[in-house]
Design a binder for these strands. Structure first.
Lengths: 239, 239
DNA sequence: CTCATCCTTCGGCCGGCGCCGAAGTGTCCC
DNA sequence: GGGACACTTCGGCGCCGGCCGAAGGATGAG
């Protein structure tokens, strides 16, 4: 990088440096894995990505320095997670751009896992998969969310969250509602403060539970009743 | 790249490859330049970026192959522009993430240009700068746009566009309204179909004109009257 | 036709960086 | 204390890719 006396936009170096963080396959794999919203140890990520621990340590150093990851050291472990909702959104958005190169279930076990993921999963801090879309569509059909002129809760929507006992706390500048493009379905679903609150409530109220240690989620019988009663979402929309 | 038999997300290679497109300083400079929404020739971009024509030719090849740019060959010229609104949004979003490393006016001329850009400019196909924000805020204050629960036009807002004679044609899946984070102001302004329509109308109706060959824009006296009459935006909000 | 202009292709150079294994540091457990 | 474990640092290797200049189309002007 020699000196460039030109009319380049001063943001170019920063933009390139930032994109470089994602521009490595191993780091990209880490970021996608961390989209589950949990904190992983460096060792877990190294095994997941299939590289030596030393290699991964350097990658984590870069990602933390770049502000994409936050770290928390506990004893001899280094826990790492996406820095904030902003970072998560960035990875989501970027991942949504890439060609849906995904057909690849090799074994029955893999096919089952992929099917469960497509049905319901978490995407950072909100619900995704067909479940996430079904909820989003139901909110829209009931006039609680409008997607026709943008993406925002209606007054009735705000009231619905309050009546259902789901608190919506405004934190900083994070929007109350925003669209997150679903990877498997290529359709938008609810994210933002309300999406996160709905997801948290769904877990707290026992509407859904995690399947194994993955991002996949299963709707419980109680959850089926709840979404049917509250939003009129039938079992058909969830299969 | 040896074979990785691991549990990596299959999207990782694509994500990394895609980010690589932006992860080069010269390509980043091109993308930022193209955010003005116009078509540039390869030569113009080469001079702008300060690299040899041969070097830039290779960069353009990658960006086009990656789907970020669209090209149009006319005679011995190769015109290139951002492929679509999706690509523009991606570059905007990414650029908004990077630290606002921008203080740097060296000469009076540069300072003047920076000041004009901060006042009013285009951002791909919509208006940005203090003008863009003033319009967005005015729409919000008048109940035509709601930003409190997301980002969407209200029914009154749709009616306002119709009454003002600004057509809103739904094209594909592009949202009618979405927020674009302003680089200089760090605040959201109106983008999407309605943002583009408003910008186009402003030029067609003579509300504003381009300053020189840059992205900067100047509000005409007629434009000042129009925004004052239609939205109650005073001159103070635009300085 | 001839020349100038714009772009692309090719060969070659060089730096950056992703990778590993070995060695070192810090932490927890017994 | 000793040993196992998690992670980091370091040296070294190899490759990818950005850069240039020279040469080769392709197009338009005269």
């Amino acid at each position: 990088m020699t000196h460039r006396p030109n009319g380049r936009d001063p943001r170019a170096p920063g933009l390139a440096a930032f994109a470089s963080l994602v521009a490595d396959e191993t780091r990209a794999a880490c970021l996608l894995a961390l989209l589950d919203g949990r904190a992983w140890t460096a060792g877990e990520l190294a095994r997941h990505a299939g590289v030596a621990a030393s290699t991964l340590s350097e990658h984590l150093g870069r990602l933390v320095a770049g502000g994409l990851l936050a770290e928390e050291r506990q004893g001899r472990h280094r826990y790492v997670r996406l820095a904030d909702a902003r970072a998560a959104q960035l990875v989501e958005d970027l991942a949504a751009q890439v060609a849906p190169a995904r057909p690849r279930p090799r074994t029955l076990r893999e096919a089952g896992a992929a099917s469960a993921m497509a049905r319901a999963r978490t995407c950072y801090d909100h619900l995704a998969g067909r479940l996430g879309i079904a909820l989003t569509d139901a909110l829209t059909a009931r006039g609680l969310l409008r997607q026709d002129t943008g993406f925002a809760l209606t007054d009735a929507g705000v009231a619905w969250f309050a009546a259902t006992g789901i608190g919506l706390e405004r934190t900083g500048r994070r929007p109350l509602a925003r669209a997150c493009l679903d990877w498997t379905e290529r359709r938008p679903h609810l994210a933002g403060v309300s999406g996160a609150a709905l997801c948290r409530h769904a877990f707290d109220a026992g509407w859904c539970v995690r399947i194994g240690t993955e991002r996949a989620v299963r709707l419980t019988p109680a959850g089926e009743r709840a979404v049917s009663d509250l939003l009129g979402v039938g079992a058909a929309a969830l299969e």
